[in-house]
Design a binder for these strands. Structure first.
Lengths: 212, 212
DNA sequence: ACCACAATAGCGAAATAGGGTGAATTCTGA
DNA sequence: TCAGAATTCACCCTATTTCGCTATTGTGGT
């Protein structure tokens, strides 16, 4: 028997879900809630295995709720169901700890199967969502394409690296066994190539574009 | 009609896949290959929509092959099918550009559905794989635990943020509508809390520990 | 031989940053 | 309401940085 809690602000949908679960074999609806403003208390008194979570709700939204719920009840699996296809939502929902993400266009049977999947340790996703997840995954984890390499010379890269480490001109000169004036020259050239005008800017750019 | 190429080193499986595709409606097998050592030529002469790709193969493995294939034929969708459940494989396969990842324990009908899914722009994954993907996603993208928060005050954080953007004291003062001496004070306090002694060090630390 | 360029070095001026000290005001939690 | 924190500002002095220009040496390519 899979115990399911429903969080959905649309009254009609909420009732539909309850009916669906009550009439299906192996499911039990432990409660329906139209917002997450009493989330922790709600679930403390009526524990469940899976929470079916809408994103768009008055007050706390489903993603914040997911985060909160995972913090207080790590054992509960959360299945996000929404009309939103946006990357930002998908991304945040996953990071918040959602175990599945399905669109509201899913059929009733699809809902039941998704809940079963989640309970079995799987992560059901609408096919299109899965594709978005993989794309996001690639984009964010791909060795951050060094957009430009700025044509820094070997020595300039060394200087920049030391600059990133927070060293002063004097220390950089000592590290590289050159005079401080040479360091000045290199830094001048680095700034020119990077189109920046200060050490902080250069460090920022170097770290963001991973030139070091 | 979905045109499918099969890459699988096990002869028996290879033949089974061909039979499965030939006997199923809407599928066409454009070729079966026991390795990827002639990948580009193979597919140049027999184009396809979906490549069913094994990971473990003699010579080039399925993940390298995926990368290569995506480079030469970006339009072809790749469905990985393997016995490996390891995170490393999943991770690399996705980064290489795979559109789906199913285990060999999948049923024949499951295979056909997965291929249909891929062709339709979805990303079929064995439920357990999907869960691993989400976990990996979270682990790798989670705002890398801010080890310390250094107890910066609101204003100090603002100043640090602007410092990271490469602004000078003067510009920071202008941005925050305060005097330059106030900015100096804040920066003094920031340096003290961060245990650094220069802007470049502070920016470096701020970016690495994601305090901004 | 000539050129481009990396790497080195120097000088000087002006701007910016860093640190010491002190102090007023506002906010905030106990 | 009272202590402490946060925010604000001032003045002084020194160190560092930034940027202008110039110049020598070595190296690789045409």
């Amino acid at each position: 028997m899979i115990r399911v809690a429903i969080f959905e602000d649309n009254k009609h949908l909420r009732e539909t879900f309850r009916l669906l679960l009550d009439s299906a074999k192996g499911f039990e609806c432990t409660g329906t809630y139209n917002d997450c403003n009493n989330l922790v208390n709600d679930l403390a008194s009526h524990s469940c295995d899976v929470a079916l979570m809408d994103i768009e709700m008055p007050g706390m939204n489903g993603i914040e709720a997911t985060r909160l719920l995972k913090k207080h009840f790590p054992g509960i699996s959360i299945l996000i169901q929404t009309v939103f296809f946006e990357d930002e939502y998908i991304f945040n929902a996953i990071c918040a700890g959602a175990s599945g993400y399905i669109l509201k266009s899913t059929t009733p049977d699809g809902y039941l199967e998704a809940i079963r999947d989640v309970q079995a340790g799987g992560s059901p996703m609408t096919p299109g969502i899965a594709r978005r997840v993989l794309e996001l995954f690639k984009d964010k984890l791909q060795p951050a394409t060094p957009v430009q390499d700025y044509d820094l010379t070997v020595q300039e890269k060394k200087v920049l690296k030391l600059l990133v480490e927070g060293k002063s001109y004097k220390l950089i000169a000592a590290d590289l066994f050159v005079s401080i004036d040479t360091v000045k020259t290199h830094i001048r050239n680095i700034y020119s190539k990077l189109h920046v005008h200060s050490g902080t800017e250069a460090v920022s750019l170097a770290l963001r574009d991973k030139i070091v």
